[in-house]
Computed example of a mutant assay.
Amino acid sequence: MGAPAIDTSPGNGHGGWVPYYYWPSLPAAIIFVLLFTVCGIIHIYRLFKYKGWYFIPFIIGVIFQAVGYVGRIGSHYDFYSLTWFIMQSLLILLAPALFAASIYMTLSRLAIALHAENLLIIRARWLTTFFVTGDVLSFLAQSAGGGMMAKSDPEGADRGQKIIMGGLFIQIFFFGGFIIIATIFHNRLNKSPSHVHEKIKGRKYLLTMYFANGLILVRSIFRVIEYIMPHDGPLMKNEAYLYIFDALLMFFVVVVYLVVKPYGDLFDEWKRRKDLGDLELTRSSQHNIFPGTSRDRPQEREAMTSSGDIESALSSRSFAEQKPYGGSRR
């Protein structure tokens, strides 16, 4: 039995407003709920196993995807329900921004872990801050616009659509900039004679980043085209486009980070270097507080230097001899 016809006439009981121009597919929604749920469970297990806390936004994005398609199941059974419509509209729309937040944090960690942060055109500590800030702006704009579009008020929905487009353009702008910076870093890494081993270790992470960013960028462009076109345009009238250019692409992003784990031994090295850097920063601060000690007493300065060298050597030896706790991971 076919799906009921969609009544868009003014007498449909909702002033001609309809949440969809098609009847949401139940099988398609169920399939993607299951796919994102299974992937989400695996990601959560690995999150706690490897303590890759910076990937929490990504996992929240996976949860958003799963719950968003639950909303489409609800819309199948209750077509005019604003609750189900808002749920699926907002969560599916916002999930890629959460994916992007974790991906942005990957590059600086990768550069530090490979001892190649000097090859970045932006300092590692500012790289994450800059791009995550842009991602937050995109997220907030899309959230506000999605909330307005979920209303049955035509004027409010039109304003919401424009705000969403603005948020998507912000996302595309920052994505483009990030891809350029990652490409420059990758090119410098390949050409650096002192990073021969590092470029081999980092290759799969960089290629994974390109793949995921490319898919999210294509999805964002699709969404912009979707909102530029009329409400009853072909992209809005055919549900298949949503599943091909949004659901399927985002599923590939989720899967690729299951295949290439964004945590583990290489990122343990990032944490070790970060902690060691914090220690060195603390020492420098202490010397700045008491500058007269090393200047006025050369013997004490020499002793402090020797002590620091010994401590550094012992620390390096300790790190080299210790079997990393992630060494047995597969």
Score class of each variant (00 low, 15 high):
Phe245Met: 05
Ser89Gln: 15
Ala113Tyr: 09
Leu276Cys: 12
Gly277Met: 08
Val33Asn: 03
Leu281Ile: 10
Leu137Ile: 15
Lys323Met: 09
Met148Pro: 01
Leu242Gln: 00
Tyr69Pro: 07
Thr106Trp: 04
Val254Pro: 10
Pro57Asp: 11
Arg46Tyr: 08
Gly147Trp: 01
Asp265Thr: 08
Leu281Ala: 15
Tyr210Asn: 05
Arg203Cys: 01
Ala95Asp: 04
Lys237His: 03
Gly160Cys: 04
Ser9Arg: 01
Gly68Met: 15
Phe131Glu: 04
Ser89Cys: 08
Leu258Asp: 13
Ser81Ile: 08
Arg272Gly: 09
Gln142Val: 13
Gly147Asp: 05
Leu93Tyr: 04
Trp53Cys: 00
Lys201Gln: 08
Pro10Phe: 06
Tyr54Val: 01
Phe252Cys: 13
Leu93Ile: 08
Val255Phe: 13
Leu314Asp: 13
Trp17Phe: 15
Val218Leu: 11
Glu302Ser: 15
Asp78Trp: 09
Phe32Glu: 07
Ser108Ile: 04
Ile289Asn: 13
Ser192Ile: 06
Val136Leu: 15
Gly40Val: 10
Phe58Thr: 10
Arg330Lys: 11
Ile30Glu: 13
Ile122Ala: 12
Gly166Leu: 07
Met1His: 03
Asp158Ile: 08
Ile41Tyr: 01
Ser294Cys: 02
Leu266Ile: 06
Tyr80Pro: 14
Thr128Val: 12
Met236Ser: 15
Asp153Ala: 12
Val132Ala: 02
Asp158Trp: 05
Met1Gly: 15
Ser75Val: 14
Leu110Asp: 11
Leu93Gly: 03
Val18Leu: 02
Gly16Thr: 04
Val70His: 00
Gly52Pro: 06
Arg159Asn: 14
Leu26Pro: 12
Pro298Ser: 10
Ala29Phe: 05
His287Pro: 05
Phe222Lys: 04
Asp7Arg: 00
Asp278Thr: 12
Ile225Arg: 02
Gly277Tyr: 06
Leu215Gly: 13
Ile180Met: 13
Tyr54Gln: 02
Thr208Asn: 13
Thr8Asp: 12
Ser143Ala: 14
Leu217Ile: 14
Val132Phe: 12
Arg188His: 06
Ile289Cys: 06
Pro234Ser: 14
Glu198Thr: 01
Gly292Trp: 09
Lys323Gly: 05
Ala116Leu: 05
Ser328Leu: 11
Asn238Gly: 07
Gly71Asp: 12
Lys323Gln: 12
Asp232Phe: 07
Asn238Asp: 12
Arg317Met: 11
His231Thr: 08
Gln286Ser: 13
Ile244Ser: 04
Glu269Met: 04
Ser102Lys: 11
Glu226Phe: 08
Ser294Ala: 14
Phe319Trp: 03
Tyr80Cys: 07
Ser285Arg: 14
Ile41Pro: 01
Lys271Ser: 14
Ala97Tyr: 01
Leu127Gln: 02
Phe131Tyr: 15
Asn187Val: 09
Ala182Pro: 00
Ile121Phe: 11
Met304Cys: 03
Ile92Gln: 10
Leu47Ile: 05
Ile59Met: 12
Leu82Gly: 03
Lys271Met: 08
Ile244Val: 15
Phe48Ala: 00
Ala247Ser: 12
Ile200Tyr: 09
Leu137Asp: 06
Phe169Arg: 06
Ala113His: 00
Pro230Glu: 11
Asn12Glu: 06
Ser318Leu: 04
Gly52Gln: 00
Val38His: 10
